[in-house]
Design a protein around this nucleic acid. Sequence first.
DNA 1: CTGAAAGCGCTTACAG
DNA 2: CTGAAAGCGCTTACAG
Lengths: 356, 356
Amino acid sequence: MSVTGHTSFGGRVHRAPGQRKAASIRDVARAADVSYQTVSRVINSHPSVRDETRRRVQEAIDALGFRRNATAFALARGVTRSVTVLTSDTLLHGYAATLQGLEEASRAAGFTLGVRLLTPEDDLDQTIAAAADTGGGLVVIGYDRLGAAALDRVPAQVPCAAVVEAPPPGRTPGRPAVWADDRAAARAATAHLLALGHPTVHYVAIPASTGTRRSAGPRAEGWRLALRAAGVAAPAPSGRGWDAQAGYEAGRGLARNREVTAILCGNDDLALGVLRALHHAGRRVPQDVSVIGFDDAPHSAFVTPSLTTVRMDFQGLGRAAFGLLRAQLDSDRQPPAPDPVATTLVLRESSGTRTS
Amino acid sequence: MSVTGHTSFGGRVHRAPGQRKAASIRDVARAADVSYQTVSRVINSHPSVRDETRRRVQEAIDALGFRRNATAFALARGVTRSVTVLTSDTLLHGYAATLQGLEEASRAAGFTLGVRLLTPEDDLDQTIAAAADTGGGLVVIGYDRLGAAALDRVPAQVPCAAVVEAPPPGRTPGRPAVWADDRAAARAATAHLLALGHPTVHYVAIPASTGTRRSAGPRAEGWRLALRAAGVAAPAPSGRGWDAQAGYEAGRGLARNREVTAILCGNDDLALGVLRALHHAGRRVPQDVSVIGFDDAPHSAFVTPSLTTVRMDFQGLGRAAFGLLRAQLDSDRQPPAPDPVATTLVLRESSGTRTS
DNA sequence: CTGAAAGCGCTTACAG
DNA sequence: CTGAAAGCGCTTACAG
């Protein structure tokens, strides 16, 4: 089966002869028999307008279906109430959920929300410049290398906030940013597996967002920390990608090794692939091997075995990032109280004591 | 474990004393010793500018880091190269993938892409008006009731295209729209199950996008059609929602009924829930019951059993919708050749001949 | 090839 | 309380 789609062309819009263009404040002024400044006052709810005048203007506004031209407003005012989000992905759960949090906060604040995908092909500086040219602020999702690189290149004069994977190293006074404590979460998840009696825990990593050789990101760090605290040597991490396919490939290697009894994954997609590889290798979860994911994607509770994972408040992160941006835009505005971006280990079927 | 997040406030941006505002064409003109009209010509690559002049202006542009003010450009030109997408969801696979197609196409065309979530709480007309006020075009994702309602209320004079669940009934000359042939796809999927030897096929429905009592949307229609063609009576459909939880609830009812051997689901999330319910009821897939989903979400190939499903080209749908919008904006532009929005039945482990 | 004028639709002081 | 002027940063005819 391979059905071809359809396209309909009913009701194409072309300005019909009788269809006049949108009314301006001058049109309204004429209809209400006042000056256009008075109209401006009315639409901006300026206090000093006589009630009777205000009423007449409002009537004209309604009659003509007047709506203030947002472009002209922005030009005159010199500001745009808009954010554009720069992200290298919109489909992965963490990104999509963060985006949703940003949308929610921007909507509540009356801001317009733009989205621009960062790709390896496009010139980063050009993409950033084009986004900045819209006149609003920027929020960059810096979970990965491309996002982190973009963040570094945003010109200083452009209002910008970020949601990142981990706090910037050192005391670098970077951009205002929010993050969750991935390291503590990974550490706790690893400790949980160790407490279950597993001799060690293997790690399937997500790609790092920074170039530091020292670590592969906070999740890997937390995992290492927990192993060290338990006096266990860390096995070499695997994983080369974000998706289930990458998890599957890493999982195949792990499944062959009979010493492997516990695996922490950098995200739920990787975990799904690992689960699949273990299944193909005939290794039962959790009887033979325990698996823990990261992010708590919507489907993770419904796969079999259901996935033990770390729940992240991505939407809260998105909302908080918007708050940081806004504090910059209205410089008199207090930076918002840090939204608590919680992290929770959700225990489900994929982790347990080894019974084989 | 419940770790609280962190917020960093390094490098807050406030215009430092020495930080002058962005250069305008007048600044460039002064630096290049020409009139600002000439600068305008240069940045618009107007042919009649002396090479020497052009070079001088370009130098000034580079020196001052001039970038044309997009807002002023839009006001003067009277058009905005922007689309805003109206959608009631951004997380479900179909929506997110459609959105990505729209982003890709808009990026390629040099359009800005806005996103606004439709919610039951907000006033639809107000949301639409606010989106229209940005000056660009609208694309509404009409897969569900809220989206379909929004589409109906977009004022005639605002440029708008849509991606919908099914062709509008009758010859209603509605908005330019694209859709995939869900009905044919559902019919083929159902026919496939019947051909496998299943006496009938049950259906777990997604919520309908229209109020027609006649049908519950094209997927349900296709399912009915296939059953009728086989001379089989259609069992009552179940399902009340979009997510895995809804699928799980419907699945519990189905799992109790020993007559049920084949289930078609309105999407992959529902299918996941159904799979889970069958598992809890001790019914094996596909030995006892076959399950087919819809949409081919990224994880569907990696769950166990892997999910037989209908692959939809959501990104293609998004791209095509953008094309329709653009044809409206540039009225001299030909509507694009309908992008083939294909639909493919992907056979995996969850469907087969009954062996119990 | 290049400059002076008017206008896009609004807002912000400034008068009265 | 209300109107006339100037300006936001561009573009589009119109002159020269």
